[in-house]
């Protein structure tokens, strides 16, 4: 049923932009630009994702470097979030999803039989579109990850981790005196920074962000973008965004997805000033979207 609905939606979308679809089929199969990077840390080779009959990601190859921010952009339904969720195997919990191809993290295949998805997600953290603090205290929200992974030997060590994570997420000053209050009592922007603090408390190597600012006001967005500038000194960050300004501000490279194909990847200023592919140009000049 779900698969059928999805196929139907897919067909409608295809019908709405037939010429673009044909262009993608003809031109978009080969990604233009630079899929490779200098210090590859996470490498996706010929990744395909199917939801039932719906072919959501088609032959995507992309490298993500150490300490690099890569932005995934593209119209709704183009597969950028699906691709992001492949990188920490969050698609595993969707029954109809099938992932093929090869994704490695620091040289190890994350889809191999030996790889435990739970251990992978501790290395590849994720921040979601809607702030989703647990209905626990601020302290317990941040301490959750270190506790389940046994990162702290005693309470003092845990305190240190919680404080430094909140500090790095730029939230400590605001919540220092009320760590016992529920995380849901914070404002939207604070909640999202709490979720980032929660993610970095586990000390991951890559952070995936799925439209982290789409539910926030411009001030909260600016704070999170500043935070990403600081975080990229330690982590590789992959961010899905609908805002091209945001992509331009925070990322070093930009990947443009269209109908499941990765159409173009390159350095951010190059994509925004001189896009190689016609689809990319149409999207960033506002003709598709």
């Amino acid at each position: 049923m779900t698969a059928m609905t999805k196929t139907a939606t897919d067909k409608r979308k295809t019908a709405a932009v037939p010429d673009y679809h044909e262009q993608v089929v003809e031109l978009g199969r080969e990604t233009v630009g630079q899929v490779r990077c200098a210090e590859p840390f996470m490498v996706a080779e010929k990744v395909n994702v199917h939801y039932g009959d719906n072919h959501a990601i088609r032959d995507v190859t992309l490298e993500i470097g150490k300490k690099e921010v890569v932005a995934l952009i593209g119209p709704s339904g183009c597969g950028k979030s699906t691709f992001l969720r492949c990188l920490n195997r969050m698609n595993d919990s969707i029954e109809s999803a099938r992932v093929s191809g090869n994704i490695t993290l620091d040289g190890t295949d994350i889809y191999s039989k030996e790889q435990d998805p739970v251990a992978l997600r501790a290395r590849v953290g994720m921040v979601f579109q809607k702030p989703n603090p647990f209905p626990k205290s601020i302290y317990d929200n941040v301490a959750y990850g270190p506790r389940i992974h046994g990162l702290a030997g005693d309470r003092a060590e845990l305190d240190t981790i919680v404080h430094s994570s909140l500090e790095r997420a730029g939230l400590l000053k605001e919540v220092k005196d009320r760590l016992d209050e529920p995380g849901t009592s914070l404002s939207g922007g604070q909640q999202q920074r709490l979720c980032i603090a929660r993610t970095i408390a586990v000390n991951p190597e890559v952070i995936l962000m799925d439209e982290p600012c789409s539910a926030l006001d411009p001030i909260a967005t600016a704070r999170i973008e500043d935070l990403m500038d600081e975080l990229c000194e330690d982590y590789a960050i992959v961010i899905v965004t609908h805002s091209m300004q945001q992509a331009a501000r925070v990322s070093r490279r930009v990947a443009y997805f269209h109908l499941g194909y990765l159409v173009e990847v390159d350095d951010t200023d190059k994509v925004f000033t001189n896009p190689q592919h016609k689809l990319t140009e149409d999207y960033i000049t506002g003709r598709i979207g």
Partner: peptide, 18 residues
């Protein structure tokens, strides 16, 4: 309990039972 909270916990590397 919203799915987003479930995803959040899984995304931090918790097992199903955790």
């Amino acid at each position: 309990v919203p799915t987003s909270i479930r995803d959040g916990a899984l995304g931090l590397g918790s097992t199903r039972s955790e």
